[in-house]
């Protein structure tokens, strides 16, 4: 199977690798995994509580090229968006952008789940109603 140029570009030059302070009340952390392939992905976002704008996003993914590219792209996309805009990102958007083949669609699902889990964690820290990642996970295309 050949990776698309965009996947290779993100894999070779991943954006926003690293971590944010988990204890910061403005930082939401999402840790998700795809057990079929043993991938694990951590996505963190720092959100301004007044404007609800995502000011910072970091990720660390242990997995295949597509999983790394999906999470790298996700951090690029969420930066500068509001929480609500970021929650509207669908895995199919990632599939389209990275031209992921069908066997790698689960990597994009993982990235979408990670965004939802991280923002769910942030909302919880802010005292908003908890958003359960399992219930918000999208259909699998």
């Amino acid at each position: 199977m050949a990776y698309s140029d965009k996947v290779i570009e993100h894999y070779n030059h991943p954006r926003n690798v690293g971590s944010l302070d988990k204890a910061d009340p403005n930082v939401g952390t999402g840790l998700v995994g795809a057990p079929e392939c043993g991938d694990v992905m951590k996505l963190q976002m720092k959100v301004n509580p007044q404007t609800r704008v995502i000011e910072e996003a970091k990720f660390k993914t242990f997995g295949c090229g597509s999983a790394i590219a999906s999470s790298s792209l996700a951090t690029e996309w969420v930066k500068g968006k509001t929480v609500e805009e970021a929650l509207a990102i669908k895995n199919t958007d990632i599939v389209r952008e990275l031209a992921l083949p069908p066997v790698k669609i689960h990597c994009s699902v993982l990235a979408e789940d990670a965004i939802k889990a991280a923002l769910g964690d942030w909302k919880k820290k802010q005292g908003e109603a908890d958003l359960k990642p399992a219930e918000t996970a999208s259909a699998h295309n």
């Binding site: 840790l31 057990p35 079929e36 242990f62 689960h106 399992a134």
Partner: peptide
Amino acid sequence: RKEGTTKQQAPPELLEEVFELN
């Protein structure tokens, strides 16, 4: 078990452990 079609869930403790080990 069918790769890519059924969503597999991993318990959070396992993910934490695996992430740290990685």
